[in-house]
């Protein structure tokens, strides 16, 4: 599939894995101002793809396009396509709610609901008419998010009483409870201390066994550590996209090299 939509080798570096998301000539504007310019790329399954680039280059805009979270921003205009497993998520007959059930998201600042830990994790499945054993699902999600050991004796306490790092892992658990295919993370560690950050990075390694992860990060080391693929955006355009190793050690593009070596941005 990625060969048919992406003739350019730069766009589909992980040809050995099938692609979950295909972005085709995507342009996104706020009003008339373009934030994403003619971007095409494919996100392979069960890999961690990092999106890096200077502040304001459009990383969040691109990430939010993947689960139609830009729908909530007035005056957003979009051209091009985003395919999820081959079908256009912006097609007229597609329900954005359904898209978001399959493609979960973790935000920059932990945003647990002001409810108990249990209710937070159970929230997604329960609104979506989940009929199985909710408690099992909660436990499984908390385990996968590496939080179970810390909270299993206080599931009924408020999520707001957790530390920032725990709250972020709770938000990951909350997303996992929906059993999504893809998890989008927008700078998930930027509000966290180094220890919590390390825990979440470890967690991402485990999660990619089952899920496809796209992470936006400002942190070069983090991108280099956790991701399999790296996309470098600048001013809304995709400058370079490839295996993380290659992007960081043998960048093809001059601007990429300057950015990853910290000479600007």
């Amino acid at each position: 599939m990625n060969t048919q939509t992406t003739p350019d080798a730069q766009i589909s570096p992980a040809a050995q894995s099938r692609s979950v998301l295909d972005v085709i000539d995507l342009t996104i504007r706020y009003g008339t101002k373009p934030a994403i310019r003619n971007v095409s790329l494919s996100i392979p399954q069960h890999r961690i793809t990092a999106i890096i680039g200077p502040s304001g280059c459009g990383k969040s805009t691109l990430l939010r396009a993947f689960n139609r979270m830009n729908d909530f921003i007035p005056n957003v205009g979009m051209e091009g396509q985003i395919l999820y497993l081959g079908s256009d998520i912006y097609a007229r007959e597609v329900d954005p709610v359904e898209v978001r059930r399959r493609i979960g998201m973790v935000f920059q600042k932990p945003n647990p609901f002001p409810k108990s830990i249990l209710q937070n994790v159970a929230w997604g499945p329960s609104i979506n008419g989940f009929t199985g054993n909710l408690e099992d699902r909660v436990e499984q999600s908390l385990r996968r998010a590496a939080l179970w050991e810390e909270v299993n004796d206080r599931l009924h306490e408020s999520a707001l009483a957790l530390s920032g790092g725990q709250q972020q892992r709770l938000c990951i658990a909350r997303a996992l409870a929906m059993e999504p295919d893809v998890i989008l993370m927008d700078e998930p560690c930027s509000a966290l201390d180094p220890v919590s950050t390390a825990r979440i990075e470890d967690l991402m390694f485990e999660l990619k066994e089952r899920y496809t992860i796209v992470i936006v990060t400002h942190n070069m080391q983090q991108a280099a550590r956790v991701s399999n693929l790296t996309a470098f955006l600048e001013n809304g355009s995709l400058v370079e996209y490839g295996e993380t190793d290659q992007v960081f050690t043998r960048p093809r593009n001059q601007r990429t090299e300057e950015y990853v070596t910290g000479r600007f941005g």
Binding site: M69, G104, N111
Partner: peptide, 25 residues
Amino acid sequence: ESLRQGAFALGATQFEVTLRVVLPA
């Protein structure tokens, strides 16, 4: 707003977000 976004990202409809997150909060 971050709570609403969080709820929407879990595949909630506007009604579910309003009645089951915003109003209780």
